[in-house]
């Protein structure tokens, strides 16, 4: 029991932080610009492939810097020449623009790197088990991911709340005209924020690429869960996203170890459903079996009960 508790908590935290790493850029863009970016996972994918390619040429560490910079630049260009023109039509066209962009990025990645997974490896410096608990190894690379996630959280939080730039950025979302009147260049701020958000996604891509599978369908597979993180945490709330990531990581991990089904619950009360009913499966599905789709249930419940999310300040 203790073993289960400790191992699951550790796995849950590690997974949660991975989620935060991937979702931080999304929540940044939403909090600043109010844009729900469907192409976020695509920028994450671009990051992974850029990371793969650059690390082939000059090694992993330069790739960790150059990849995100390039993707950030692409993000800024997309904002400047695409999103900005769509902005005046409202949020739905903005969202649909990113929707179309995701299609295009996926196809381009497929053209360049093919459709099969590429061989993107963990750098050798970090390719060793860091410690062992209950005979289970924890690789150093996972701890590295954890540290980067926390680092990004702290840095973003500090920049947004403690620095002058952060204040201007936040103000230009709520009072763009006022900020502009004060002589700040609001469109430039938006462009930088979108670029930074894309770069964050790319950092996640470069780091998660070797640990997961770097393939052209990685964006489509990952996209929805990032929305869950951001929305459950409260749209636009950085700390909310942080807490939600942890919560989802822990929920999913602990659920995997629960082999209880509805039938078991009802059996306690002496009721057993007939085996012939068409919905028989519904009774016998265990919590462990559906663990990875529990976050979506959480999403629906949170939005119904507290539409602003866990730590969101405004109603979505």
């Amino acid at each position: 029991m203790l073993e289960l508790l400790i191992v699951s908590t550790l796995n849950g935290v590690l997974f949660g932080m991975l989620l935060f790493l991937m979702a931080s850029g999304l929540t940044l863009i939403f909090s600043m610009m109010g844009v729900l970016n469907f192409a976020h996972a695509s920028f994450y994918m671009l990051g992974a492939f850029f990371g793969f390619q650059i690390s082939r040429w000059v090694g992993f560490w330069p790739a960790l810097v150059v990849g995100p910079v390039l993707v950030g630049a692409i993000g800024a260009v997309v904002e400047r020449f695409g999103l900005r023109n769509v902005h005046r039509h409202g949020h739905v066209p903005e969202l649909l623009f990113t929707f179309g962009l995701a299609f295009v990025i996926e196809e381009v990645v497929q053209m360049i790197w093919g459709k099969s997974p590429v061989d993107f490896r963990v750098p050798e410096v970090l390719d060793f088990p860091a410690f062992t608990i209950f005979a289970t190894n924890y690789p150093a690379y996972k701890l590295f991911m954890l540290l980067i996630s926390i680092g990004i959280f702290v840095a973003l939080f500090a920049v947004l709340t403690k620095t002058r730039i952060g204040l201007i950025v936040q103000a230009s979302l709520t009072h763009p005209n006022m900020v502009a009147h004060l002589g700040h260049n609001v469109p430039l701020v938006f462009m930088l924020v979108f670029g930074l958000g894309s770069a964050l996604a790319a950092i996640a891509g470069v780091i998660a690429g070797p640990a997961l599978v770097t393939q052209s369908n990685m964006a489509a597979l990952l996209g929805p869960i990032l929305f869950v993180v951001v929305v459950v945490g409260g749209l636009g709330s950085l700390s909310g996203a942080f807490v939600a990531s942890l919560l989802i990581g822990l929920l999913q991990t602990f659920a995997v170890s629960v082999n209880v089904s509805l039938a078991d619950v009802f059996a306690v009360f002496g009721f057993t459903p007939g085996p012939d009913s068409m919905l028989d499966d519904l009774w016998r599905v265990t919590v462990a079996q559906i663990a990875p789709i529990l976050p979506y249930l959480l999403l629906v419940l949170v939005l119904i009960l507290k539409p602003s999310g866990l730590m969101g300040t405004r109603e979505t």
């Binding site: 289960l4 191992v7 699951s8 796995n11 849950g12 590690l14 997974f15 991975l18 989620l19 289970t136 997961l212 597979l221 990952l222 869960i225 999913q252 991990t253 995997v256 170890s257 079996q289 559906i290 663990a291 990875p292 789709i293």
Partner: peptide
């Protein structure tokens, strides 16, 4: 486990 929904198999490996 659900098809193509899992990013981290660590909990399953623990089991």
């Amino acid at each position: 486990h659900p098809l193509m929904k899992i990013t981290d198999f660590a909990p399953y490996i623990a089991k």
